[in-house]
């Protein structure tokens, strides 16, 4: 699709969608939302770029290899945070007992492992959605 209005509106609206997605991911433990919803919103912004500007432009922003690395790296990050509980002598994914920082209720940096895990899930879901759409739309 090569339409001037669609291209210009996409360039204007994509940063706002991405800021909203990052907001949902970072506030996952103190407001509605979380890793899955925010990651889906973040993935939708890249899908919008693919639909309006073409697959080459979107692959320049986030290539297939980078997407795979993000997908694998975020789930490794999740598992490593889980192992921090085992290293300190507790169960898998132990939060308070493993010595994580429990801040004030309502702050962004609070409640121990939950924000770190939410960020990992957000990156994982976003890159999975993007990879799925790029594989379907690719010419074979």
């Amino acid at each position: 699709m090569d339409d001037l209005i669609v291209r210009k509106v996409t360039k204007w609206i994509v940063p706002f969608i991405q800021v909203y997605g990052i907001f949902i991911v970072l506030h996952g433990h103190i407001s509605p939302g979380g890793g899955f919803s925010g990651g889906a919103v973040l993935g939708s912004s890249i899908i919008l770029i693919t639909l309006s500007l073409g697959l080459e432009k979107a692959s320049g922003i986030l290539s297939h290899r980078t997407s795979s690395l993000l997908e694998s790296g975020s789930i490794i990050w999740y598992v490593l945070i889980g192992f921090a509980g085992i290293v300190t002598g507790n169960n898998f994914l132990t939060n308070r007992g493993a010595g994580f920082h429990m801040g004030e209720v309502g702050d962004i940096i609070s409640s121990g492992t939950i924000p770190l895990i939410t960020v990992a899930i957000g990156i994982k879901v976003a890159s999975t959605v993007i990879t799925l759409f790029h594989i379907i739309i690719e010419e074979d």
């Binding site: 939302g33 919803s37 889906a40 899908i47 959605v129 379907i136």
Partner: peptide, 20 residues
């Protein structure tokens, strides 16, 4: 939170995948 997920996944991503 479920409404947010439904609007992003159900109305957005699933539709685009089906159209693809």
């Amino acid at each position: 939170d479920i409404a947010l997920t439904e609007a992003a996944i159900g109305a957005g991503v699933t539709t685009i995948l089906f159209v693809g």
